[in-house]
Design a protein around this nucleic acid. Structure first.
Lengths: 125, 125
DNA sequence: TCGAACCATCACATCGATGTGAAGGTCAAG
DNA sequence: CTTGACCTTCACATCGATGTGATGGTTCGA
């Protein structure tokens, strides 16, 4: 598919698809006329990238962890340098911290909403 | 305490403490000489703000959800406008989505690391 | 063949979070 | 009284993600 369809299916501006490519997050084939061409799995790939970006990870980190998320993973083992491993460990821990922080605060917001809505329902009866 | 101590204890640049105040995320008393003065709980408050920022929430959202996270919460019920409630519901759902995305990818990274380290340990023996 | 709807690259603008430095006030210790 | 370590405000710079528009090529249907 071309960039327009990918854009619609991932609800992502064309501009950003080109930007992600520039950052090495996604790749594209090129037709003879120079148009970008994407295969089907690219839809999920883009959605994953967007999710990670929305979760607060910068592109340069996403670029590093994406190769670990492909299957089969075995083929990626050889190129795991010690430096990259420690980067991943650090980022894994940072993600865990984020998850904890987000979960705590999400629960707090949720509890607040439950309380408010319960009161409101009781009040309008 | 003054801004320098708060900065050290929260590992946050003074510049950002002033910025958070400007954005309405934290408040400060003023000494007679104009210096900002913070009370003890502000340390946790700042850490919470930083956590939320790091988790990808923008200051304007943090500003909205922070009042819900204070205790006792009861006193905040009256000022819960319908519009604010729907904002909170939206944000709660967005946080849940983020948590899911982060968790999936954190687990994937984690599994990858486990596999790599297991192989490495096996190999060096 | 012409116009609409794609696509390309490039450049500049914006926005939020953050860095940095200037210019100056306050205060305690030497 | 001066020096140094704080503090103030203000402004401009940077950085990553994103918006927007200019300029021009390709394809397809009326």
């Amino acid at each position: 598919m071309r960039i327009g369809e990918l854009s619609e299916r991932t609800d992502t501006p064309r501009r950003l698809l080109r930007y992600y490519e520039e950052q090495g997050l996604i790749i594209s084939e090129r037709c003879t006329n120079g148009y970008r061409s994407y295969d089907e799995p690219m839809v999920d790939r883009v959605l994953q990238v967007r999710g990670l970006l929305d979760a607060g990870l910068p592109t340069r980190i996403i670029k590093q962890i994406l190769p670990c998320l492909d299957k089969p993973r075995a083929i990626h083992f050889p190129d795991a340098t010690p430096e990259m491993i420690s980067t991943l460990e650090l980022e894994r821990d940072r993600m865990t911290t984020r998850i904890g922080c987000l979960t705590r605060n999400r629960n707090a917001v949720s509890e607040y909403l439950d309380a408010v809505l319960t009161l409101r329902d009781a009040g309008e009866r």
